[in-house]
Design a protein around this nucleic acid. Structure first.
Lengths: 330, 330
DNA sequence: CTGAAAGCGCTTACAG
DNA sequence: CTGAAAGCGCTTACAG
């Protein structure tokens, strides 16, 4: 009826609770005879260690906190899946939560996870000052930053170069002859949005032969709904319509394509669309995009967390040309 | 440096630790004078309750376990998002994990979450015997089943009628004149796959005027990769190709459409494709599908968990006709 | 190598 | 209404 406790196992094995605990936590310190006796009792009773008690006493739990912007964005879930793969093999349980890209909620969440004595936290940071993160780290909780370009001392991070990625995207459009390009960005409060804007601008500024324009429109968030609204806005307010739209993520791009289709504007014949991330759905659109190795980076972030190694991994994203981009129509 | 403890707050407020705890847990039992003094100390020190200690002592934590088949499937993440919305408003933290639709891993996970003294578990059950679930519930952990058609006594569940949904899908194809229909199903070990097959068969068996065929192919899992392989198999092995493909979920449908496109088979002119779930990407394809109200059901499941009410909610899914289905070509 | 004991930070009857 | 004390189930020095 009740779950067995350490003392139940101890009684059954005819040893003390301390010895059972030793078998569990430092088996080498127990004689083979006692160890096998205890192990039998453990399996016979189907013992599961009380995680709360263990966490309280030892100061550490089998929980790893993962805090991302948005759990419905495949970008983050691909990453979380990579993290989970690394974590599960050591028996850790992932506690996933969303910050909704809000600094307040991020702070609340970090404290809450710390209070659970999590083994560590994998975080997509919203705030770039990292004040709360530092606080938590100072008190002894490991944090690894996912998708963060800041490389604070003592805190590991993994990231992709967003500036380079956006540059790649816009360069691709320029090479196709586009000279009036719209950029459907995410909210500027998010670092990724700022960096991608910087990259887009840099590519534009490189154009020498002719003049190139970048029309920037900021979406409310990185969702398809926001992308749709953004494209609707372009269609209504920008005349003539740009011949290409660079979107700050694939979800925005998907939304933009829905809007274009609703207005019978053909992609890529009249307007080219390019995204960012390469979420699984991008392939089926099929959407030209800038690929980020999300699962790989997630795996790496979890690995850094477990090993305790401190380092800053940066990856350069790659361009994936599919069928949503083509030559400029004029 | 160290996080403040209850006793630090007590000292600062000039009261005992018990009184601070009372302010936190049963404020009405404390006089207004003491209460406000304690509350000030609480905020001044930025106190965060130690969750592990609280869980150990009270037997309950602020954690809610969520165990789904696959965290990269938008179907589950839309649901999780609904759960999170309900949970976050009461200050609960969601611990999301994947069972990979495997009964073993499900059992392991349930025990692990129980050991964390979670407030409850929201589970997409793999095993239909529910033995481990019952065990956990007997010991006092609340469980609400998500997407489960079994309605065990004492355990709440929310679900959509998969049989009816699949019937709806195939009926739609039949009404369009299709008589050779392929069904790209998920693994039969999963209840949803079995139910959707039953629904598809039922629709087929209703046809009176002419004969209708259902060619069933079981995919490895509910992913786009599996869907692609499934459609490739159909293209290679079934001649003539069926004029319509019903897919057990949208991911499989998306994969199938990629395969068809790679073979220059036009959708819906030569082959109609219909999915199941209505994940956000479906709209942008645009894929005809059977809609499940995932976020709503997730919210409801979390609500049942928190309220402790036991009931079984069933929803009837709805058909969403978009542009991936059309009249049979012959 | 093993056992008895202290203690992690809370919560909760209970005495005053 | 408040405080002192016991105890949740573990882990970990420490004595034997």
């Amino acid at each position: 009826m009740m779950r067995p406790r350490l003392r139940d196992v101890a009684r059954r094995a005819g040893v003390s609770a301390g010895t059972v605990s030793n078998v569990l936590n430092r088996p080498d310190a127990v004689s083979p005879k006692f160890r096998s006796r205890v192990e039998r009792a453990l399996t016979e009773l189907n013992y599961v260690r009380d995680a709360a008690a263990g966490a309280l006493r030892s100061g550490i739990s089998q929980l790893v906190g993962v805090a991302v912007f948005d759990i419905t964005n495949p970008f983050f879930m691909e990453a979380a899946s990579g993290m989970d793969q690394r974590l599960a093999r050591e028996g850790f349980v992932m506690a996933l939560a969303s910050t909704h890209a809000d600094a307040q909620q991020e702070a609340r969440l970090l404290r809450e996870l710390e209070a659970q004595h999590v083994r560590g936290i994998l975080l997509t940071p919203v705030a770039s000052d990292l004040a709360v993160v530092r606080e938590v780290v100072t008190r002894g909780t490991r944090v690894v930053l996912y998708d963060s370009m800041t490389s604070p001392r003592g805190i590991s991070s993994v990231a992709v170069d967003d500036v380079a990625g956006a540059e790649l995207a816009v360069q691709h459009l320029l090479e196709l002859g586009h000279r009036r390009i719209a950029f459907l960005n995410g909210p500027r409060s998010v670092r990724q949005a700022r960096d991608r804007l910087a990259g887009a601008r840099r590519a534009i500024s490189r154009v020498e032969s002719a003049r190139a324009d970048l029309i920037v429109r900021e979406a409310q968030d990185f969702t398809a709904t926001a992308g749709r609204a953004g494209a609707d806005w372009l269609i209504e307010n920008v005349d003539p319509l740009p011949t290409a739209i660079f979107c700050a993520d694939d979800l925005i791009a998907i939304g933009a394509m829905v809007a274009l289709r609703d207005h019978q504007i053909r992609v890529p014949e009249r307007v080219s669309v390019i995204g960012f991330d390469d979420i699984p759905a991008a392939r089926s659109i099929p959407l030209t995009t800038v690929r980020q190795p999300m699962a790989e980076l997630g795996w790496l972030a979890a690995d850094l967390l477990l090993s305790g190694r401190v380092c800053h991994e940066k990856r350069v994203p790659t361009l994936l040309v599919r069928q949503s981009t083509g030559p400029a129509p004029y």
